[in-house]
Nucleic acid binder design. Sequence first.
DNA 1: TATCATTTTTACCGTTTGGTCAAATATCTT
DNA 2: AAGATATTTGACCAAACGGTAAAAATGATA
Lengths: 221, 221
Amino acid sequence: MSGNAKPRATERVVAGKTRIQKENQTRILRAALDVFSESGFHGATLDRIASEASMSKPNLLYYFKSKEEIHVALLTDLLDVWLAPLREIRPDGDPVDEIGSYIRRKLDSSRSFPRESRLFANEILAGAPHIGDFLQTELKQLVEEKAAILQGWIDEGRMAPCDPRHVLFAIWSTTQHYADFSVQVRHVLGLGAGDKSYYDEAARMLDTLFLGQLISRPGSD
Amino acid sequence: MSGNAKPRATERVVAGKTRIQKENQTRILRAALDVFSESGFHGATLDRIASEASMSKPNLLYYFKSKEEIHVALLTDLLDVWLAPLREIRPDGDPVDEIGSYIRRKLDSSRSFPRESRLFANEILAGAPHIGDFLQTELKQLVEEKAAILQGWIDEGRMAPCDPRHVLFAIWSTTQHYADFSVQVRHVLGLGAGDKSYYDEAARMLDTLFLGQLISRPGSD
DNA sequence: TATCATTTTTACCGTTTGGTCAAATATCTT
DNA sequence: AAGATATTTGACCAAACGGTAAAAATGATA
């Protein structure tokens, strides 16, 4: 049933474990990512995760104590991936380069890890019951750090004056939209289920939007 | 328990029904919107909806045949609200005015109807099992119509050349983000649970982003 | 190959959940 | 007030669910 090689965000930290433990934990998390990202936490069932992992339910529960533990494990793995693109923003670069490549990294992440993105979106939509702490501490701190960089560019007159944190929100929402709302995007564009061709046009539009000027005001001609 | 007057998208079409039927259907839908938008379809239970509607579960099922029927009723009501701001875009207006006011309408909608927005987001994330048809027909058609207007502005040189449908995606994602991901927004900004003050700054930033120029390129000084 | 720890399975349990049914109660009409 | 209709409720059910216990099977080790 499974010989697939879909990309996954992480290969899970499983140090000091036996070969079988490593293999099975990976299989479980792989299957759980599929099921959780498709059906959400409450919509997912252990039976289906076990089935997709080609494993009996009690066997699955031998490796993870509970449904929630699997979910938390996936989310924990996710957070590093989520933060990585943001971490790379450098204060000494040019605004166009730094923001441009950040958008590209986020868009690539959205295209390469859509299930991870949907898992994250589901968690936030549900009120972030498991990662609320992460949002308030680690993410908040990193955002403040990077927002300070943008603020520096604003002070130098290289960026329009506005709250840099909201600029980050705009980048997050526009890029993640293509993973989280892919069904809507595909239906509106009239594309098939597996078609991801819209990412190229998305990248072009986002470049214009964030780095260029979308609307030519009268008199700039 | 409830004397609340939270704004709701619709007051539900209940023509030819008795007073009691109208009242109870409204009470049920009101409660269901709370529960579904907070917990998603699978996370919501009829017991909790009935409880929040101050009603017994069998009584609730006297008005709606199933859990799914309540969900579909809410989604159906939602679609008109969702489309309304888009419908108002006029071809004879100025790009700045039309897109600017569209963004404002969508942002207002996000602020006024966050539960509706989250309900919609949940449905899309789950693969749009109930409104897939709407997306492929009604929404697609309207998007094509409005995209043609934007394309006209592009052809006239009043907008940068890029797929107008993706511009709409960007407006949807950025505005809805403040409702769907409000937990993340608040945690990052360090705001309390009920605080919606960020909407003002969001409006400013979106104006700069879509109607102005975010990044000042060297030599424009 | 004998021993021990790890892994897997079978059978099962208590709870929750969406939903039913028939009886009881309230409301409306005449 | 009487009768018909609409509404509400308590008791209940089958299925699905997350999870457990203990035995059986497998793998590692000496």
